[in-house]
Nucleic acid binder design. Sequence first.
DNA 1: CTGTTAGCGCCTTCAG
DNA 2: CTGAAGGCGCTAACAG
Lengths: 390, 390
Amino acid sequence: MIKCVKCGEVDAIAKSGIIRGKQRFYCKRCDYYFTQPSLLSPETHHHRRHQTTIMDIASALQISKSTVSRALQGHSDINANTRKAVLDMAHQLDYQPNLLALGLAKSRSFTLGIIVPEFINSFFPYIIIGAQQVANPAGYHVIICQSNESLDTEIANTNVLMASRVDGVVASVTAETKSLDHFHKFQRAGIPLVMFNRICDGLDVSKVLVDDYDGAYRGVEHLIQQGCTRIAHLAGPQNLQVGKQRLQGYLDALRKYGLPVYDELIVYYNLTKTSAQAAARQLLELPTLPDSIFAVNDPAAIETILIAKSKGIKIPSELAIVGFSNEPTSALIEPGLTTLAQPLDEIGKTVVQLLLHEIESEDDVLVPRTEILKTQLIVRGSSLRKPLVS
Amino acid sequence: MIKCVKCGEVDAIAKSGIIRGKQRFYCKRCDYYFTQPSLLSPETHHHRRHQTTIMDIASALQISKSTVSRALQGHSDINANTRKAVLDMAHQLDYQPNLLALGLAKSRSFTLGIIVPEFINSFFPYIIIGAQQVANPAGYHVIICQSNESLDTEIANTNVLMASRVDGVVASVTAETKSLDHFHKFQRAGIPLVMFNRICDGLDVSKVLVDDYDGAYRGVEHLIQQGCTRIAHLAGPQNLQVGKQRLQGYLDALRKYGLPVYDELIVYYNLTKTSAQAAARQLLELPTLPDSIFAVNDPAAIETILIAKSKGIKIPSELAIVGFSNEPTSALIEPGLTTLAQPLDEIGKTVVQLLLHEIESEDDVLVPRTEILKTQLIVRGSSLRKPLVS
DNA sequence: CTGTTAGCGCCTTCAG
DNA sequence: CTGAAGGCGCTAACAG
């Protein structure tokens, strides 16, 4: 017994077609169409939304859904008129393919996952933009996951990407990440993975890096050329390659130029702002101040500048500073921060290119590749004690 | 019968381990390793990956997949032992539910879409973080789409979200966006939509905004209290509510305090950096300079500061400046930028709360709600001509 | 060139 | 408490 949803009428009800596999009714008394509320679980019809499917197009055109499917895919074996009719109808009905169904049927989601540790600084956003510029034209969407510098969130993100059945993943880890167990599952499932920028040891995958060692070396060399001799290093976490490589570049530059290495001039921080401030303070409260600081990245260098200024230390005459990454802020602060620019756009593009290569490769055995990109020294006021030698 | 992929040999084939869940073979004749091409669709074996399914768990345990499904969902009608066995096996096999299949079956993706115009400035990232803090605990994932300030990309993003069958969308539009036709499809499909920050007219949806009018008014009032009388406005696009509201707040503050409104002191920009520079230059090259500028946002204010400094104009004595949004950079630049802070985290949380409310509402007719959050005036050096009255 | 059929992984009835 | 069966929307053989 069907009751009108609106007026409660029972007798004047007529059937009126089927929508989404559900019988539709018409109440003659109050002129109202309705579908029978689900008998099975009346309380779960959250939203009665409907997005058009190939079935809608098919029945509108009185053809089979296979034909619609083929027309939509630009299959060659199809009548030009049929195709046109299908495309027109699709447009008219605002058709958008259901990616969930598509992915399920093809066992490919055409989605890439991007895991970054944070996106408050513009470093990773620029990389993501580059990544999208390669992924989108190739027909892939992108799910962006940011881990908030938390290992737990990073692990959760890997699970989300697994569950979303992404076709590939590019990732840069948090400062906390020491083990890469949670990334192994991509490999076990045969999902290609490319790491970039922040990596740690123990994963045999393709990588896109900048030459951190070389950049650090040149940054420190620049300080030496400016006459600095007591050069400190505000170093990054040593579980990350970046941290290690930049420290090594610093050390080698000192050695190369015959400068002593003082342990108290090397302090570490964990990539958080407060930690940067603590580390900077530690350096600037030494009995004998360094005459310059090479910071592992710009945010740390900027905190150092702020603290130095608050202590009345003159930059660059009393303290020269070099950072790493060329954040937009680094050009704004006074004095401008000398730093090593990274080709962010290119990192993003390269990392997705490598990934797509692996995804679309027919080979069973993929040899991981590593791309190393160059950095560029950008000299600004924070380190400029003498005119630049050109 | 296995045939060598390379030479067609049938007899001299040996098994050689399993790669990615697929048997690998070795042809002794031509010394060639290969995996057996998929029998069903030889040309489509893009990747032979396999992620474990409930079926895998079921057959490992010799039970039906329905039981596995129920156990995994924490259904009550299930034997405690069975459940434990299932959960253990799921863990052991690294099971992750297939979100594509789940979404297809339930007609809900448990995914929210976020559309932002850009994420280079930290404004939107902070909002996104707030949004995730509400979405994730509620069991929703988030797809972040950034439109790169391009209308075309924005339209593409709406299509992606439609195709991904997101359960709801929160969006902030680009500076180019004048019509909201591409957002109507969400409404047609019954997908809840909440707009925030950058909105334009013509869409009857829930909104989360800050009190732009009030903020602008107070910013200008502050300048007046500092003794400024010839106050310029570097205004935003007038297709956006923010642009209009902040302009109105500026105008009303002037009127309230009996100051004249000069047309040449109001210039517009389109939210790009170059446009900000052009607008700032226009103001700073007037025959009679303004004594202060209220900029529609911090990036514009910062460009103005840079150009003023390059022209040798003293800030704040010759030119006082007030921005809007409190970007992190605004605290770093010299002098510090006076600005109106927005509660970014709260915006993000509120916008998702409204959205979830609509998604989970049982009502057919939802009355759009508008939440207006307050801004906070942060006074820094760029506007401080007199000691603050406390 | 087109329709039919089976299946992707999961949930959800309906019967035991 | 558990299994069988059907369907979510789409693709891809397989027949005509």
